[in-house]
Design a protein around this nucleic acid. Structure first.
Lengths: 344, 344
DNA sequence: GATCCGAATGTAAAGGATTACATCGGATAT
DNA sequence: ATATCCGATGTAATCCTTTACATTCGGATC
């Protein structure tokens, strides 16, 4: 290992070939005779040479980087998506730049500028907002723009996306509760602006309506985080619901906390069902019944979709729907005969 | 917004100046007369021009990027550190590339190569291993190498780092339990190889020894994750401990789960204390007593340290110790008079 | 033996920004 | 009026790689 990384020129000189040949050995080895190839490779190994990415990127107009923005990086759900995306990206020769937008449109725009500036080749965003500064690009390139959405499928965005069937998943959750005998069910949603939350709500209402229990649904608007869910749960308990469906496991955690605080017990007095199947969900008290999303796979497929676009591959599907799964643990049970009443 | 991003040459032509002047307007505005500056800025705004980062990076040998590797991105603890790092990086004009090494030395090496290749300007690693491929760089540049560690302070690494006083924090936790009257205390540590875990263990043993309770400490080696902590907790309950100190909140969650499974209750039968103060810790059942680490601040300070190094600033301190705090919630209480016995 | 072909390799332009150095013009000093 | 200086700007080299096009050479074809 030399003090400074050698350039392709030095490698070429040492191997007694031109820089073009060195470059070819590294990127299109089949074009080079075996003799030459081995000689060059030996020099590369000796010197520890690695191509300068800036020069390469300048010449090729490719950055070999993908920007992945998440609305809240401290949300465990996104962590798994990121992991899946990183793995897929590495497989495809890209690295991932993770951007935490903190739900801030201004920050979203800042990150989106990296795409305009060609600092990254493509963008995957897990929120529901397409950054404003990308509108011209979308208008120009449409579906061929190197932009992919994860989770928050929204047809009017016109962006390829990877997601589960949120309405169906939600219907499964409600169906599970109704099947257990619940008739008064609380629902804690995500923000109203979130398409994902709207889909889930539609699915829940639909399932309840089909069972003739539309009026048994008590809906509260949450924001996927635990704090507000605690408040909503208190409120729902006052409505004598026997079960609560939270649109995220974090909110389910808040619900369990509120149920305990109220002197009630889950699932004896109130059942709780979550959404996401976080790694910790099985360690909740009681272990949480929830809808599992294939988090890592969502990350992986968004990257694959994006890489297809970057390579100009005509992918058959620009909307990928992955399977969800209802994971039944111990936080759901048949309701007690008499409606639960809060003690103390 | 034109179809293709214009180059500095076009901007220069439109503004009737040389490319040098455009460049100066953007990076050293004080060197340019106000007239010219305003004229150039107007053209920049009109055309939506932004410098090509590859060209800039090629010329300046700076990538304006920092690589941040974490051993496990799905661990909520790291999420907060990442967020702090990203914010600080953006403040300093850098963006952060997050790498998830999954505790895999090979992946660590792959990421470290990005530094050798000058793909990033510096590296922050949150694990305890300095990637092997960086040894030559460290040997050459020593403390001036653009490498910083977060959390896992290890003097022999010779790398600047940002961390809390883990031994003292751990002693605080044990002191809290002893103060409540606990005499048989379980400790679930991190992996033996983790310096952070060793420091915490040393602090715990030290505190117990000072109180004459060295023999009351029952130590089990965990790995910061919930699963193994469940098993260790079962084991510790069989030893009739009245309190358990876990070196991470995730493990505390596992402990709580195991305590519930054993038909015991926290804190009545067994107290539990964690480490990290994850955002969700307050929603555990019961709300978790834990040691708070300034997670975001750790991220922020690592970046600041690294940026100082990159700028050649002679920072006074290469080891930053941040404050921790014992957060007392409801998972710790005085032990019951009679030693807890497992029911059923 | 001349011609052609193709595989292997070389030459040199291009990619876009930064910056050391050169130049210019006007103000200041003498 | 001349010499000097300084601020503002321009010129052109440089960063390193990729790749279109040119060249070379041995072998096949006629």
């Amino acid at each position: 290992m030399t003090v400074l990384m050698p350039t392709i020129i030095e490698v070429a000189a040492l191997a007694g070939v031109s820089t073009a040949t060195v470059s070819r050995v590294l990127s299109r080895p089949e074009q080079v005779s075996e003799d030459t190839r081995l000689r060059v490779l030996a020099v590369v190994r000796e010197t520890g040479y690695a191509p300068n990415v800036a020069a390469r990127s300048l010449r090729t107009l490719r950055a070999a980087k993908i920007l992945l923005t998440v609305p809240d990086i401290s949300n465990a759900f996104f962590a798994s998506v990121i992991r899946g995306a990183e793995e897929a990206a590495r497989d495809a020769g890209y690295s991932v730049v993770v951007g935490d937008t903190r739900h801030d449109p201004e920050v979203e725009d800042q990150y989106a500028d990296m795409l305009s500036r060609r600092e990254v080749d493509g963008l995957i965003f897990l929120g529901h907002r397409l950054p404003a500064s990308l509108a011209p690009l979308m208008a120009r390139r449409g579906i061929a723009a190197p932009i992919v959405n994860g989770c928050e499928y929204s047809p009017d965005l016109g962006v390829p996306s990877v997601h589960i069937d949120n309405a169906a998943a939600s219907a499964d959750a409600i169906g599970h509760l109704i099947g257990l005998g619940h008739r008064r069910i609380g629902v804690v949603t995500g923000p109203e602006i979130s398409p994902i939350s709207r889909d889930r709500l539609a699915g829940a209402i639909d399932a309840a309506t089909r069972a003739g229990l539309r009026d048994g649904l008590h809906i509260r608007v949450g924001d996927y985080s635990a704090g507000p869910a605690v408040v909503h749960t208190r409120d729902l308990l006052a409505q004598d619901v026997t079960a609560i469906f939270c649109f995220s496991d974090e909110m389910a955690m808040g619900a369990l906390s509120a149920i305990g605080d109220a002197g009630l017990s889950c699932p004896n007095d109130v059942s709780v069902i979550g959404f996401d199947d976080l790694p910790l969900a099985r360690y909740f008290q009681p272990p949480l019944t929830t809808i599992a999303q294939p988090k890592a796979m969502i990350g992986r497929r968004t990257v694959e979709l994006l890489v297809d676009i970057l390579r100009g591959v005509d992918s058959p599907s620009r909307q990928v729907t992955l399977d969800h799964e209802l994971i039944v643990r111990s936080s759901t049970a048949a309701p007690a005969r008499a409606p639960a009443r809060r003690r103390r």
